[in-house]
Design a protein around this nucleic acid. Structure first.
Lengths: 245, 245
DNA sequence: CCCCTAATGGGACTCCCGTTCCGTTAGGAT
DNA sequence: ATCCTAACGGAACGGGAGTCCCATTAGGGG
């Protein structure tokens, strides 16, 4: 049963279950495309693309949710497509046919996660915006469910090129969302003119991820505030200017 | 054959092949210990502990090297103990008996890697020491062989508790090696008195690892210098003081 | 409302990872 | 040098993940 409840209002929330068809992300079965002008036996293309309607969409969301639960419970290495099929109450064959591998499934899950918008704050102060961002990241990584999910997803990205691209896309989205708070600080004159906004935003997350990966120390709010303060101080000192210091 | 040559003088170099017995790290087969006071059939404990001499040690180094090669080639997810046994020219059974799982093998490999000492620089300037450290990390992660190895090892750490502990131990060692250059800077009066030296050192590595994991942009020397400069600036601004700012 | 077929689902089959059994080799203590 | 047995290695075995085949269900266009 695995409750899929997350702290209300927490970062990545599930999509509306009735979502119609959000680009089913066909798995790259790029193979033998030629000779399609035959009689009637046209090569069946990647499933889920021709009739993305009701059932297909339901199967997709059910499987993605099951995958999320499984990732949280057993991590990426423990991912079993057969188990996911059972959780999703979907035929085992279907999962193998539409996704084919655990990494492809995670890549699709990441594409789905990237869709969730996560509005940034607008406090009017760079320090406060960065701290809000750091605390949000901290809370996500420290949350048992979300943290486990992110670990799993990072692992998958290191095992497969497609999953890696999906993860990069996810972070690109997140960084794009928060970069404006740096740009605005530049316009207010708080930072050097040629400051690389994306780099500042990444600088906030980096120590938190690094800490999660390499130490046992808990990811507490003090660590988040420190990360934000450090990124702010470095930015003010011109460490993230596009042209040398 | 997979050349195991690394840039000369590069970070993790292989141990002396003739190393006698460096704590063979028995896999935790903690099971049925009781009733050892029987007749003659004493339970055979973890292999490699009673006779760590010649052959056993040779097998260990051969397997660890093979594991390293395999990790570099196929990543952690592609690790196959049978394949490793072949590469090491060792019986498949032996690998399964002594390590038992891919994660345990990686944990042992990490323990081995942690033994390699990697002396820090002593330039007399915090900025230069940090930059030297950043460039070393950068070079390691950007190196095809070392980079792949580190990715694989991080993945393993996220799949298994023992591997995670081994990875933490590895980084603890590395941080301990470099922390003094921060402490000395404090003594010289370059940084606030209660600066957390380890945190500064980690702050240098963090953005490099984060960049490797979440972007496609190459890990160039400019990125390393930026990471060092940012950590230095933040430290001078007091962002890493033990008690609040 | 009906038809065509995309998409799903069950079950049998295959292959390979990991285990077990037991004979062989070689530490290392005497 | 000799013996004892820890440790290794080959071969056969078992189970589970992934594939294949075909019958069934349900989009969605007419």
């Amino acid at each position: 049963m695995a409750a899929r409840s997350v702290d209300p209002g927490e970062s990545v929330d599930p999509v509306d279950p009735a979502e119609p068809a959000s680009t089913p992300e066909p798995v790259g079965t790029a193979e033998s495309v030629g000779t399609a002008a035959s009689v009637g036996t046209a090569e069946p293309f990647t499933p889920g693309t021709v009739r993305p309607g009701g059932r297909t969409a339901r199967v997709r969301t059910a499987v993605l949710r099951a995958a999320e639960d499984a990732l949280v419970e057993h991590g990426f290495s423990g991912l079993d497509l057969g188990d996911i099929a059972q959780r999703a109450e979907v035929g085992r064959t279907t999962v193998y046919r539409r996704w084919g591998s655990t990494t492809a499934l995670v890549a699709d899950l990441l594409a789905d996660m990237a869709e969730q918008s996560l509005p940034r704050t607008h406090t009017g102060s760079l320090a406060e915006d960065l701290r809000a961002n750091a605390r949000l990241v901290r809370r996500t990584l420290a949350d048992p469910r979300q943290g486990a999910l992110f670990r799993a997803v990072i692992v998958a990205a290191n095992c497969d090129a497609d999953a890696a691209e999906a993860l990069r896309h996810f972070y690109r989205r997140r960084v794009e969302e928060w970069a404006p708070c740096v740009t605005e600080a530049v316009e207010r004159g708080e930072l050097p003119a040629d400051t690389d906004a994306s780099e500042v935003v990444r600088a906030v997350s980096a120590p938190l991820y690094y800490r999660m990966l390499t130490t046992v120390e808990p990811l507490d709010e003090a660590a988040a505030d420190r990360a934000a303060a450090a990124a702010g101080a470095a930015a003010r000192a011109g460490a993230y200017r596009l042209q040398g210091p």
